[in-house]
Every structure is written in structure tokens, then in C-alpha cells.
């Protein structure tokens, strides 16, 4: 130490370009150690991180694309389903409409038939009542007329057969004369 300071003092200003060899050697050794550490440890770690990161990003992009495709597919599916449902609904509506119409038609014919039936039944009943009434009236009128005639003539008409024939003839004549009148009242 003393020696070197003495040298420095003697030289005054030493040439700064002259390397101090031990320092160069220490510098090279430290550099080599640092290089070893960086080569073995630092750079591989960093490269690994970089790689992982880029892979992560690429993976993320791939995943996002996949998700988008999936969404697209689902949308298509949904749309087609919607269209199907719409067509189905329209079909059902048409069917329902047709069915309703059919039902109305059926109802109408049924009601028509029913009413026809009721009308005809009524007519038949009316006809039956009419013929009954006519029969009753006929017998009643015959008896009355015979009673009246017997009282008028004063004699009892014994001969039943003859009497009936007379009354029937009378009534037929009567009916024949009143038929046009009855026709007009009926309508």
C-alpha cells in the first residue's frame, strides 16, 4: 500500500489509460459469474414467463373464438327453433280455425235436424189430435143429430145399421161441402 502510494506520488499524474491488471481480472471474474447466473437462471425463467404469457393469451383468444362460435351456433339453433315454433303455431291456428268451422257446421246441421224433427213431431201430433177431434166430433155430432132428429121425428130409429148409414151419408155430404172452407182455414 505504501509502495503504491509512493509510486503514485512519484508519477504525479498516472496515465489513466493504463489498466490496473488485478482490477481487470476481478472484473472479468465477476462478469463471468454474473453471466453464469443470468445464463442458467435469469434468462430461462424470463423466457418461460414470456412463453407462458403468450400461450395464455393465445389460449384465451382461441377460447374466446370457440365461445363465439358456440354462441353463433346457439343463435342459429334458437332462430330455427323459433321459426319452427312459429310455423307450428300458424298450423295449429289454421287447424283450430278449420275445426271450429267444422264444429259450427255440424252444430248448425244438428240444430237444423233437431228443429226439423221437432217441427215434424209437432205436425204429426197436431194431425193426430185433429183426426181424434174429428172422430170425436163426428161421433158426437152424429149422436146429437140423431137425438135431435129422433126428438124432431118423435120416433126411435130402431134399425141401427140404417141409422148409421144415413148419418154417414149426411156427414160425408156435409164434409164435401165444407172441405174447401176447411182447407182455407187450415192454411
Amino acid at each position: 500500500m505504501n509502495e503504491s502510494t509512493a509510486v503514485l506520488a512519484q508519477a504525479g499524474q498516472p496515465n489513466p489509460l493504463m489498466p490496473h491488471l488485478p482490477e481487470t481480472i476481478v472484473g472479468l471474474i465477476s462478469f463471468a459469474i454474473l453471466y453464469f447466473v443470468v445464463h442458467k437462471y435469469v434468462v430461462p425463467r424470463f423466457e418461460k414467463i414470456y412463453k407462458e404469457r403468450s400461450e395464455r393469451i393465445e389460449g384465451g383468444i382461441a377460447r374466446a373464438e370457440e365461445a363465439q362460435a358456440e354462441a353463433q351456433r346457439t343463435l342459429e339453433q334458437y332462430k330455427s327453433q323459433l321459426a319452427e315454433a312459429r310455423a307450428e303455431a300458424a298450423r295449429i291456428r289454421d287447424d283450430a280455425r278449420a275445426e271450429g268451422q267444422q264444429i259450427v257446421e255440424e252444430m248448425r246441421t244438428q240444430a237444423q235436424a233437431e228443429s226439423d224433427r221437432i217441427i215434424s213431431q209437432g205436425q204429426a201430433q197436431l194431425a193426430a189430435q185433429r183426426s181424434q177431434i174429428i172422430a170425436e166430433l163426428r161421433s158426437d155430432l152424429g149422436r146429437q143429430a140423431v137425438d135431435l132428429a129422433g126428438r124432431v121425428v118423435g120416433e126411435s130409429l130402431e134399425d141401427e145399421a140404417r141409422r148409421r148409414g144415413t148419418v154417414d151419408r149426411f156427414l160425408d155430404e156435409l164434409e164435401a161441402t165444407s172441405a174447401p172452407a176447411a182447407e182455407s182455414t187450415k192454411s
Binding site: 489513466p16 489509460l17 489498466p19 491488471l21 482490477e23 481487470t24 481480472i25 472484473g27 472479468l28 462478469f31
Partner: peptide, 9 residues
């Protein structure tokens, strides 16, 4: 600023 070290590197 000691030239020996830059020389080495």
C-alpha cells in the same frame, strides 16, 4: 472509470 474493467468486457 477505471479502464481495466471496460477493457475486460
Amino acid at each position: 472509470s477505471n479502464p481495466g474493467i471496460p477493457y475486460g468486457i
